[in-house]
């Protein structure tokens, strides 16, 4: 497989520029029908779960909308981050293709999608945003714990223990350019930092949109 896409000059997470290479089962029509055989069905769920996680990781999708369009709070493209003024870039990505293969005209029904999500939830790889069975789902291609570990490692490596920074700085600032958590969804960042807070490694203070964090 060749990547004919022109590579952007700054080598940050350029993953969202190339299209996702779907696995072979995506072209397998029965993949989109809930299998009646239990063993087969389990194999199917495993494949779907892997596909969803891989897909979200590829496009750095943090919140997936089951009905189709995923609201992707990504700021991965470096050109934006350097110029972006204040708000986090809300990027809309059409994710209908994930559950709907137009080429073979097959789609996974919403009930089946929820089953996949439940399967992921049991594995700690997904969570409904705001609980319940809403339309928006966190897809943890990295769990909050894993994000926390990344942030912690970065703090450690750059000797920023004891320093204070805003959450915005942490994911949008120049200092974290090239770090994997750069451009991380704010809510997800908060979840990750709360993991550190629980461990006594950090403290969060401030109001809604001007939160700061101090690392110990």
């Amino acid at each position: 497989m060749s990547n004919p896409t022109p590579t952007p000059p700054p080598p940050t997470s350029s993953s969202s520029t190339t299209s996702f290479p779907f696995p072979r089962e995506y072209s397998f029509p029965p993949f989109f029908t809930r299998q009646t055989n239990l063993t087969t069905h389990h194999a199917q769920l495993v494949k779907w779960a892997a596909l969803v996680v891989a897909y979200c990781r590829h496009y750095r999708i943090f919140k997936l909308a089951l009905s189709g369009t995923g609201t992707v709070a990504t700021n991965t493209t470096t050109s934006i981050t350097t110029t972006a003024g204040g708000d986090q870039q809300q990027q809309q990505r059409d994710t209908t293709e994930l559950f709907h293969n137009r080429r073979i005209n097959r789609r996974l029904s919403l009930a089946d999608i929820r089953e996949v999500i439940d399967f992921l939830r049991k594995d700690g790889r997904a969570e409904y945003v705001n609980g319940g069975g809403g339309d928006l789902v966190w897809i943890y291609w990295r769990t909050p714990e894993e994000w926390a570990a990344l942030v912690e490692a970065w703090v450690e490596a750059t000797g920023q223990r004891g320093s204070v920074m805003t959450l915005y700085e942490l994911v949008e600032g120049d200092a974290t350019l090239g770090e994997e958590f750069h451009g991380l969804d704010q809510d997800l960042l908060l979840k990750a930092l709360n993991v550190l807070v629980k461990r006594g490694k950090a403290q969060i203070f401030g109001q809604e949109d001007s939160r700061g964090v101090k690392f110990f």
Binding site: R24, E25, F28, P29, P30, T33, Q35, N37, R106
Partner: peptide, 29 residues
Amino acid sequence: LVGEGMLWVDKQSGDEWEYWSPGFMLDED
């Protein structure tokens, strides 16, 4: 064969269900 897990059912194929050999997951490629 479906009971043995050796065929996968596709219920979106129109009039009649189709039963696929899982080996074809690899062939497509």
